[in-house]
């Protein structure tokens, strides 16, 4: 307990220091060739002896999201190279959160392509060892990527607030899914409002976009964890409200996978307030355990 308090103090001081250092982080712009989109990422180069860490934001967020910047800052202070891209969601150089009511044409596949592009870019920058850290749906997308990529430079993956995206318990309406599927089959890519995640029925998306993310249902997610070839760590907030919908059995399910499940009791979905430091402590602990 005493050590935890010391870490909090240390983390707070480091956060302040990192905040100062963060101005040294630069924005990296990259064309995503297949889509003719320009994507941006925040890149801070750390010690070469330490792995580069790609940190991915949650659904519709940006790299400026609190949880992302918190992790980036602590890692940069620990000497890690960090890259926090903002998924374009089909918007070049997107700078702001995308509203539920905005037109969503982006797909999971496109997001994976962008992730792949950024991993390649890191590799191109000479980072032989890359660790992936995702938050929320960013964890899902990194999980999807890592399970498929089989990329040798990726040494481990840390998944925070990991949940799945499809399921009646999440409010997904089968009729909407059916309707979207019908439209997609009919090549009518007309956007509609759907019940999806926290957007309730305000999620305005094309059927392709909507259906692409429904792929990430509970069994598929668990299967991805099972199939990972690299170490995975899953950090969950004990007070995450998503549990109201998915139930705490999701933690049991996660425990049954190879992932190293860490639950920070009291923390919410975003690990805000004092749990920010718990999250940072856990991630640092994980990274420090990772062999070079």
């Amino acid at each position: 307990m005493k050590q935890h308090a010391l870490f909090i103090i240390k983390s707070f001081g480091i956060s302040l220091f990192a905040l100062c250092l963060s101005v040294q982080a630069k924005t990296v712009t990259q064309k995503i060739p297949p889509f003719n989109l320009t994507a941006e990422a925040s890149y801070a180069q750390g010690e070469s002896s330490k792995p580069a860490v790609l940190i991915l934001h949650g659904f519709l967020a940006t790299n400026q999201f609190f949880t992302v910047t918190s992790i980036s800052n602590i890692l940069q202070s620990e000497g890690f190279t960090t890259l926090a891209p903002t998924l374009t969601l089909n918007i070049s150089q997107r700078r702001s959160l995308v509203k539920c009511t905005s037109l969503h044409t982006h797909t999971l596949q496109r997001d994976i392509i962008e992730i792949s592009h950024w991993v390649d870019w890191l590799h191109a920058q000479g980072h032989a060892k890359i660790i992936l850290i995702g938050h929320s749906s960013g964890s899902l997308e990194l999980l999807e990527y890592a399970s498929k990529a089989n990329y040798p430079n990726i040494s481990s993956i840390i998944l925070t607030s990991l949940f799945y995206l499809n399921g009646s318990e999440l409010g997904i309406l089968p009729e909407e899914v059916t309707k979207a599927q019908t439209l997609l089959k009919s090549r009518i890519n007309k956007p509609s409002h759907y019940q999806f995640l926290f957007c309730n029925n305000q999620y305005y998306a094309t059927p392709e976009s909507f259906l692409s993310y429904l792929k990430m249902d509970k069994p598929y997610t668990l299967s991805l964890l099972d199939s990972l070839s690299i170490p995975s760590y899953t950090i969950m907030g004990g007070a995450d409200k998503r549990f109201h919908k998915v139930g705490r059995k999701w933690l049991d399910a996660l425990k049954r996978t190879p992932t190293n499940l860490i639950t920070i009791e009291g923390a919410n979905h975003f690990f805000s307030r004092e749990y920010e430091f718990d999250l940072q402590e856990k991630i640092i602990d994980i990274l420090n355990q990772t062999p070079p």
């Binding site: 003719n36 989109l37 089909n90 918007i91 070049s92 150089q93 997107r94 700078r95 702001s96 995308v98 509203k99 009511t101 905005s102 037109l103 044409t105 007309k190 956007p191 305005y204 094309t206």
Partner: peptide, 24 residues
């Protein structure tokens, strides 16, 4: 961002203009 999105890809311009823009 959405304006920029529509300028780069106006495929869904009308949907965006009618259903999104006026509600934004």
């Amino acid at each position: 961002d959405e304006i920029r999105q529509q300028i780069e890809d106006p495929s869904y311009y009308y949907f965006w203009h009618e259903d999104r823009l006026k509600g934004s």
